[in-house]
Amino acid sequence: MPPANRPTRAHRASRTVFRILPLGDAALTIEFGNEINSEINSRVVAFATTVFDQHWQGIHDIVPTYRSVTVHFDPLQWDSATLAKRLKALPRREPDQAEPPGILHEIPVLYGGEWGQDLEEVATFAGLQPAEAIALHASVLYRVYMLGFSPGFPYLGLVPGQLAMPRRATPRTKVPAGSVGIADRQTGIYPTATPGGWQIIGRTPISLYRKTRTNTFLLKPGDRVRFKPIVRDEFDQLSRETET
């Protein structure tokens, strides 16, 4: 709860603007803005947490994304108008008060070679040597904006503009698990082997998705990620540790 002795902030918070949009008859999308930035995403994460904390019956899923929250509900238990009213009435919090500092993860990555087949192209796109492109990608403290696409796939940002190469024209039919890719100003990690169109620049030996563990997914929206370049020996060593 926000402290009571901060009326100015509370007043500002109550005017946080969002739009509630129908996503069919079994979901609502609550949109906080139309760009990728950490302030909007903080509001998204805070609002998703608030909705989750209500533990309303008949709410199936609460999905935070870059700039909106989609609430999926059972249309036999809720009608959209009632749910929209309840969502509007929820207490709103300033993101800086609401958001617990996300966990900082250091993700080791073996860049280039067979593990990052698009590194050279990305470096050429950026007008850099591959080593410079690696250093630039690894220099940023990234925010986990959302999970989507496949189980545990994190959308991280923002990639420096120089490295922001668009997706491949034709997606690969199989991208190996652990692959680190770039798509425009987003970077991400493929938790499992799936088809994918991102520019693959490296691979992490650590696992983001463990089906058998209770804490199944390593990353959460609001977490921070720093990539740490590693060499082949470290990659092999960490791969063996991950397997056991």
Partner: peptide, 10 residues
């Protein structure tokens, strides 16, 4: 368009 939540039937 910035990626956001989907729904079955969309």
């Amino acid at each position: 368009f910035i990626s956001d939540g989907t729904a079955t039937g969309a």
